[in-house]
Design a protein around this nucleic acid. Structure first.
Lengths: 252, 252
DNA sequence: GATCGATATCTGTGATCTCATATTGTGATC
DNA sequence: GATCACAATATGAGATCACAGATATCGATC
């Protein structure tokens, strides 16, 4: 009865031969896909308005549509993606109102996380944040958009992580996933101001054991970013003349 | 529409049909399952610590495991469920710390939503909230736990909905899904104080066009509920002597 | 009688298949 | 030449299957 169940093995071996060829990892496929998608959203690989095809994504990642379905489902639940009437999912195009909403909530939530973190600050945290900020500064100097985003995110998230709230973190992550794609596009605009002065103030406040000041610093950082994003966002969300390519990218 | 959810026997034959006039509804199965699960979590059909079996749930709902997988996946993403080491999912058992966290964030988020709603309050909203509160009062008088929860939830969510923030709502819903099961269990405890005086204050504040007072009212309401929940929660989360039945319920 | 090991069952995961529908492309008609 | 209709295609949804790991069960041995 299990005689014909054998051909399945051959198919599995022939499948991943598409690219790297070494990823049979059982039970970790959807995890891989999830990381890919999250990073893709944060890093600008997916543009606002872009529709994600289940089969194309799966083919590009060298797996079946199934793990992709699960991941997309989760991202929709986290409001990082939205579903069209046809059931497809796409990267949301943020209206100015929603962008404003998003950043208002960011101020509150991340302000809270910062204050909590500041209350239980330890020297190691300040040290770590200082190192990350150094990376950010060099990335800014080099105009390295990818590392700017990456370092900035790392700074914020290590700070929030120090708050030690298992409730706060997922909510904040959800927010970041929502404005991630738009954030990336905004950095492509030359007029976008980039500096990390707020981060310095936050570090100083942490060192001075002043939670309120740390919160003020984060709120100011967020508000500044929000204003900059809004200034370049059109009525239908951020639109770049060269951002009309709906092609999926798989190499990043 | 729930007429066919009972016939566990007929569900096997339900594949080709759609003639029995119930719900073969294409593309809405997972939606149905989602509503079922959400309501189940809020209404106490699922107990903290209970593990959800994919196949059993699917069988109980008369569908294939597929839609259930998608729904569970989303609920895990919303932190309403957590996954065990084996990949199964279960209703989280909230530790006192997490419960405290949860309610701190509730105060901030729902306080914000309340203030926003109060700023753009219209007479219809006050009227609607008043009617809902009446339902709640009668439910309290009757000691009708189910309607207490339902009316209370309706009160809060119509209020927050009036804030008009597409960002805030999903976050608040996520929080409610997280403490929903624990909330239900807490109401089973006789010493649980139940009154809607805060709601009255909120209504008054809304009528007086006083957003700050409305926020104070909601925060007090949340804080009171949180304290009550914590007072009955053991070190391993809320534990009731009669709540050890891991049996799945499908009829509610 | 208790403990350890082998087996049988149950679990989620990933792949494949079918189908209804949405989308698109093409052609014919006005 | 534009528009509408029809067909070809593509897409997601749901069901089913096959596999691997975890769990529980039962038997044998000490």
């Amino acid at each position: 009865m299990e005689a014909q169940g054998r051909m399945r093995v051959d198919k599995i071996e022939s499948k991943p031969a598409g690219k790297d060829g070494s990823k049979p990892a059982r039970g970790h496929v959807h995890e891989h896909v999830l990381h890919y998608m999250r990073r893709g959203l944060m890093v600008g690989a997916f543009l606002p308005g872009q529709v994600m095809s289940l089969r194309k994504l799966a083919a590009g990642l060298g797996t079946s549509p199934m793990p992709v379905r699960e991941v997309l489902s989760r991202l929709v639940a986290a409001n990082a993606l939205e579903e069209t009437k046809g059931g497809s999912v796409r990267v949301p195009r943020l209206s100015p109102e929603k962008l404003r909403d998003l950043f208002s909530v960011r101020e509150v939530l991340e302000g809270m996380a910062t204050e909590l973190a500041a209350r239980k600050v330890r020297p190691e945290l300040i040290e770590e944040l200082g190192a990350i900020n150094k990376e950010l500064l060099t990335a800014i100097e080099k105009r390295d958009i990818l590392n700017c985003l990456s370092s900035n995110q790392k700074f914020h998230f290590t700070l929030y992580e120090a708050a030690g709230s298992a409730v706060l973190m997922p909510l904040i992550e959800s927010l970041w996933l929502q404005f991630g794609p738009t954030m990336y596009m905004s950095l492509l605009i030359p007029s976008m101001p980039w500096n990390a002065s707020d981060h310095e103030h936050i570090l100083a406040a942490l060192g001075a054991n002043n939670p309120a000041a740390a919160r003020k610093g984060i709120v100011h950082d967020i508000r500044t970013t929000g204003k900059a994003l809004l200034s370049v966002a059109g009525p239908n969300g951020l639109e770049l003349p060269f951002a009309n390519g709906p092609e999926l990218q798989f190499d990043y």
